[in-house]
Simulated assay, not measured.
Amino acid sequence: MRALKLHELSLADRLADMAVDALIDEADLSPKPALVDRRGNGAHRDLHLRLMHASALSLWPMFKEMAEAAIEFGEVGLPLREALGRIGRDGEQAMLATTGGVNTHRGAIWALGLLTASAALAPRAITLTAARLALLNDRYAPQPLSHGAQVEQRYGARGAREEAQLGFPAVTQRGLPQLHKSRRQNAGEQNARLDALLAIMTELADTCVLYRAGTEGLQTMQHGAQAVLDAGGSATLAGRRRLHELDNQLLALNASPGGAADLLAACLFIDRLDGAL
């Protein structure tokens, strides 16, 4: 059997590849504060890098199906939104089957699922299209009181749903601009991606951190991330010292910024899509 050539891949195949690549790039990026990376499992007892890779790969069929659904429906509307919800729930079950019940990428299924479908519909207006989809209510979605929902009720924090409904401002206003700025400053690709993560962390009300460590954890994350950038970013010695301090502080609080990690994956997906365009 001959090898499949890149130009023979469908649009849905290519978008699924980009989504999975973004998840794997996010997981591999090191050193991330209190997150799973090449050094270890961060603040997580049930996660490790191999599991994150396996989880990402298990979601490839889901991302492809979401892109295909967007192409088939051809427009933003309730039929597409509910199709994406069904596909996402099936994808979550496939993920849990792969990970033995561990939630590795539930937040990324929401964010990258919307973005993958939006890229198939309108690649030059991806976040606007994703926002329009997120504003539609899936009548068939279950309503469990997730960790994010509990945090939203307790702290009034903007969760993943509202972040998408607003067009992913943490990505478009913080992550992507910082990624491009650090690249222009020749920080190196890995440092530029770390800086993008930190920029997202400076203002995000990360529900993962709030659930684990409350407002103390959130303030530690936001102020610590800003301190790294103020010190010159991940490419500088002073910035690396601040990053090491932030890592230790979040580990002591058992606070892992999983919401920021999901949005970094979204940032890398959009960046890769922009390069392809």
Rank of each mutant, 00 (worst) to 15 (best):
L128H: 14
T129D: 00
T129E: 01
A130E: 00
A134L: 05
L135T: 11
L135V: 10
L135W: 07
L135D: 07
L136E: 00
L136F: 00
N137Y: 11
D138M: 02
D138R: 02
R139K: 08
Y140I: 02
P142R: 08
P144Y: 02
P144S: 03
P144R: 02
L145M: 05
L145V: 06
H147P: 09
H147T: 07
A149L: 06
A149D: 09
Q150N: 13
Q150D: 13
V151C: 01
E152S: 10
E152D: 13
R154W: 14
R154T: 11
Y155D: 04
Y155N: 04
Y155R: 04
Y155C: 05
G156P: 10
A157G: 10
R158V: 15
R161I: 01
A164N: 00
G167A: 04
G167K: 10
F168I: 15
A170C: 10
A170L: 11
V171L: 10
V171Y: 08
T172F: 02
R174P: 02
R174I: 04
G175C: 03
L176I: 09
L176M: 07
L176P: 09
K181G: 06
S182W: 08
R183G: 12
R183M: 15
Q185S: 06
A187D: 02
G188L: 02
G188S: 04
E189Y: 09
E189A: 13
E189V: 12
E189L: 12
E189W: 05
Q190P: 12
Q190I: 14
N191W: 03
N191A: 07
L194P: 01
L194K: 07
A196C: 05
A196G: 04
L197E: 07
A199H: 09
A199M: 12
T202R: 13
T202S: 10
T202D: 07
E203R: 11
C208N: 14
C208F: 09
V209N: 02
L210Y: 08
L210C: 13
Y211C: 14
R212H: 15
R212N: 14
R212A: 14
